[in-house]
Amino acid sequence: MWEKIANVDRRVIYALMILVIALALLNPIGMAIVPSQATIDAYNYIEAMPNGSIVWLGMEFSSGGVTELIPAAQAIIRQGFKKDFKFVCAGMWQQAGDMAEMAFSIVEKEFPDKQYGVDWVNIGYKPGGEVLLPALINDVNEAAKGIDHRQNQLSSLPLMSQFKTIKDADLIIIFCTGTPGEQQYIKHVTGPLNIPLIESAISVSVPGIMPFVQSGQIKALIAGMKGAAEYEALVGVPGPAMAGMDAQSFSHGLILLFMILGNIGYYATRNKKG
């Protein structure tokens, strides 16, 4: 029996994982979300920005990061629209434009007075990787080749008359799953221009980002789906991240259970062999 516990077939683990995640998503028990200090710091920083600030949203991720990053983006946009923020979105990742549309698609309906081109603009993906960032410092219109994600002329959008270069941003918030990401923004934009930077990142990236948070180069970090769920709680509008925390909790619980069983099986069989 101990042999079996020490060597459970991986397909059993996969099947149980699917079952646990599906059950938690279909029947959420609504575990209490207590915001961490890091998320509170991000919320307070944005809340302290003057009404009407222009905020750059760097959508530096693709569909793989949707589950963890879109909820944070939606919660921030909600908070920002309440404070009459203007948002300009773009990204170095190919799906940046689609991700911005996805983030705004739901929130836009909650704020019918907010208009595309006046309150937010989606420049979308522009090629070049990190070289795009210095180009945005010189001239956003030129760097974006004059058109946004929806194929509008940027010069025809009222918001862009106030936003000529990325220097016009009062705050930069980026949503990242990897490279290019925060290091490129710190190197080219937020470091030299002294513009505050807030980041929402997927959980696996968090350990690598912590030194930048400690050094103050990133003012606050919304870490993974947990951070997004905490942000939703702070903004007061429950969303997909809060709904997903039960599934994440139970999947972690299952992995921990298997780790314990694996060790019990390992020690039992090891003593037997000895």
Partner: peptide
Amino acid sequence: MLGRVPLGA
């Protein structure tokens, strides 16, 4: 793993 989800609390 327990600290990054509500399960720990």
